[in-house]
Amino acid sequence: MTTGSTYQAVTANRLRDGVTVYFTALGAWSTAIGDAAHAEDATDLLAAAAAQPLEAVGAYVIAVEKADRGLRPVGLREQIRAFGPTV
């Protein structure tokens, strides 16, 4: 179940192993989407993330929503990135 409001967060792949990561409020990268910093407009988050090119590759903004158990990406592609292959 979701509350209906969508936010923006910043995701990328970790440089050394390619794992999906999310930019956190502390300015670091986390593999857990629950740790993602989210805002109505993630432009500033993206700029902060892009300033750390050694940690992660190809940062971009995604839509997320609040679900029962924390944040959840909107859209199948990002859900698969967040939670793994469906097979």
């Binding site: 792949n13 192993d17 390619g18 794992v19 999906t20 590759v57 190809g58 990135r81 793994g84 292959p85």
Partner: peptide
Amino acid sequence: RLRNGLYLQLHAY
């Protein structure tokens, strides 16, 4: 890396 067959995909290289 691509010249050596290494792509970056959704979850890993």
